[in-house]
Design a protein around this nucleic acid. Sequence first.
DNA 1: ACATTGACCTGAGAGC
DNA 2: TGCTCTCAGGTCAATG
Length: 263
Amino acid sequence: MPELPDVVVFRKYVDEKALHRPIEEVQLFAEEILDGISPAHLQSKTEGHRFESTARHGKYLFVNLDGSGWIVFHFGMTGYFQYFKDGEQGLKHTRALFSFNNGHHLAFVLQRKFGSIAFTEHVEDFVRERRLGPDALDKSLDLEVFKVIIKRTRGNIKSVLMDQRRIAGIGNVYSDEILYQSKILPKAEVGQLGDRDLERVFRAMKEVLNTAIDSQADPGKMPEHYLLPHRKKGGRCPVCGGDLRSDKISGRTYYYCPNCQFG
DNA sequence: ACATTGACCTGAGAGC
DNA sequence: TGCTCTCAGGTCAATG
């Protein structure tokens, strides 16, 4: 479920399990996932080195290699990490495997090969090159900045929230939750939204993402008034009890409550 | 500038 | 059990 909250959880996972340990070997099982880096380059950057720290911007996770640049992970639609001991069963869709000198391994698992591994000398360079907007939870993204970013554009509010070049970190699921909490329809045109509305979206954005992080990005642990646990065919609105509906924007299915959301 | 569509991949789940 | 169809948390390029 790799949107911003999920990547926060993955980051903690790496922080707790895989830092400061010499990497003996890296194995690649799907070279296609490398983005702008060769297998040999990845190998020379990692083998004999350590993961020393992590950073995150939007849906990207950066892992620092003892001062000599960063490995950049993107999780696509299905990615996650699995840390395991020698002798334990690895997972089928492991695409890259980092093996440490303590007999433990960090697997980068992707069912669909939509994720990637890249490399950058500096996090800021990567963010600039990919033209990513500010991270949705960064303090620099305050209400005023948010309003400027949103007003700079037309179109429906959902697409704008999901555009990584405007704001980084929000995808299909969390944009639905943010708009549900804001009581605004995903297809509402941003030009039709007033300052009051944008303020609600802004507050919901911060609150939803922080709440999701507190819940380890697990829908089952989220508050009862959240859409996420009910976000499926036949689901009911946890607030009014009515049937949720779904529709599509640019081919992506979204869910909403026709009774609670306006715009 | 914006919206839509298809492509990229690999299943899981539904319906027959 | 097996087959076929649709759908899935992302991004990118091409097209209107």
